[in-house]
Design a protein around this nucleic acid. Structure first.
Lengths: 224, 224
DNA sequence: GTCTATAAGTAGATAGAC
DNA sequence: GTCTATCTACTTATAGAC
């Protein structure tokens, strides 16, 4: 029962130190605020209160560090949305589930995780190699959304002419773009969540909100 | 009537040469494909078939060159969308105008202009100074969309609980995210345009498409 | 106007002390 | 484990020939 290949095996990775975590979080912070192009290893080190070479004790290279931020960030988004969906009552329909997914995505992106923001804002700037590390997680997240939409379609709820793949990317795109303009300090995220839910539901289902759904004020919206 | 301050005045800028244009276009190409972080001046020069120092005859610095790409790109987006809107019949409603704006934005972004893509994909990565150059144009574009939405609201067409500012950013965000995933060579952009129009119109108005509008096949979408 | 040659500066990465 | 000191490579930018 030796813990042979579980830990302390690979060169300079997977030591569960607090310092390692601090560096990783610092990297997420710098990436999410300054962007990949302007992110210096020295910035990360300063943010983590370590000298620059200290990073190399935990990560083999700058790209390795950033790749791990991407993996963690993408995983957190998925886990948070999945977790939110898991707590939806079984009898809730696809519409409610999509509403929950929209909210969860926005909150993890803008409130909960600098890792998530780091992923969204920088994925397109990465080298092929670094992006590859994140691909598996990203695929998994998109599969989850695909299932959400396919379920809605199979129940005949979706607007009939929607291409599901394109619809999925447009919706996720609208959510992913929010870090580019949303300033958490200024405005209440609740209004953003409600507006996004309303537009997405109306856009996909033709009906803005679930009847009897909390917080909405739709009585007559067909009087246009 | 001397043309004193019109041209040939500033140091190394505004010479209407073909080479200058080639460098500018090359910069847009490299920026839109590789991203700001990976864009080297040498890449731009190679793409423009000039040696690296040749760039400095036309642009004072790397940032000056990139700033001009951003200005041009942002202007092209606005001009293309404005031009498309200008050819909409006067009796068309806000719904049709927004459909046209969605299509124009997508086409200039994905089909017509590498400058547009360069702007969308890299704005967030720029330094404060470079971004500033593009700000005026960007503001103008957003004012145009704001007017579109306000007109729709004043005519009572929009879904009642929408925050117009947030709605505008979500819609533009969905469009701006398309360069991150759309591969022009693979798929037909017509399907993307139709899907985006459908979702945006349904999302904002509660009704997927204008009655009697070209290309759509909506007969009954309230049978959910 | 565009080139060759090169300077100047910066950032990633390593060596080795403690 | 984390530091100081340093190396190397790369990129922007300039000088000056043609």
């Amino acid at each position: 029962m030796k813990p042979s290949n579980t830990r302390t095996s690979s060169l300079t990775r997977d030591r569960g130190d607090a310092t390692r975590q601090r560096i990783l979080t610092a990297a997420a912070t710098v990436l999410s605020t300054k962007g990949y192009a302007a992110t210096r290893l020295s910035d990360i080190a300063a943010e983590a209160e370590v000298r620059t070479p200290g990073v190399y004790y935990y990560f083999a290279s700058r790209d390795e560090l950033i790749a791990e931020v991407m993996r963690v960030g993408q995983r957190r988004v998925r886990e948070h949305v999945e977790s939110a969906l898991a707590s939806v009552p079984d009898d809730a329909g696809p519409r409610e589930r999509i509403r929950v997914a929209v909210e969860a995505h926005l909150r993890v992106e803008l409130e909960l995780s600098e890792f998530a923001t780091a992923v969204t804002r920088n994925t397109s700037q990465l080298t092929e190699q670094v992006r590859g590390a994140q691909q598996a997680e990203s695929d998994r997240y998109h599969r989850m959304w695909r299932t959400l939409l396919e379920t809605a379609r199979s129940e005949g709820l979706l607007l009939p002419d929607l291409d599901l793949g394109i619809a999925r990317m447009l919706v996720i795109g609208a959510l992913n773009w929010t870090p580019e303009w949303w300033r958490t300090s200024t405005d209440s995220i609740d209004v953003l969540v409600a507006t996004a839910q309303s537009i997405v539901c109306a856009g996909l289902f033709g009906i803005p909100a679930d009847p009897g759904d909390g917080g909405s004020t739709f009585d007559s919206m067909l009087n246009s």
